[in-house]
């Protein structure tokens, strides 16, 4: 099972790297918001896998907070983008 956890974490980490690339490159603010949102999602997934692998449940409540914050954050940021573009 340890190999399985390691492999899963490695794949999620690779996905996170690709997302980071989009975060850096993303031509629009919206792309960056989206990439950040996905990055948080991957953090949640990786934390869950890590909690299982280390048999340590301390981080579980943090996942709830992360999920909430990511949602509120990206919605707010998207609204700001719309407002800013609308002022132009």
């Amino acid at each position: 099972m340890t190999i399985l956890y390691g492999a899963t974490l490695a794949v999620i980490a690779a996905a996170g790297l690709l997302t980071l690339l989009r975060l850096v490159r993303g031509p629009l603010a919206l792309d960056r918001i989206m990439a950040l949102d996905v990055l948080v999602t991957m953090t949640i997934a990786a934390t869950a896998v890590g909690a299982v692998a280390r048999d340590d449940t301390t981080a579980i409540p943090v996942l709830v907070v992360l999920a909430l914050l990511a949602f509120i954050g990206s919605v707010t940021a998207a609204h700001l983008v719309e407002k800013r573009e609308g002022m132009r």
Binding site: V11, A14, A15, L17, L18, L21, M34, V38, M42, A45
Partner: peptide, 9 residues
């Protein structure tokens, strides 16, 4: 996750 990131890119 990986395929999603790939698509994102």
């Amino acid at each position: 996750c990986l395929l999603g990131a790939l698509g994102l890119l």
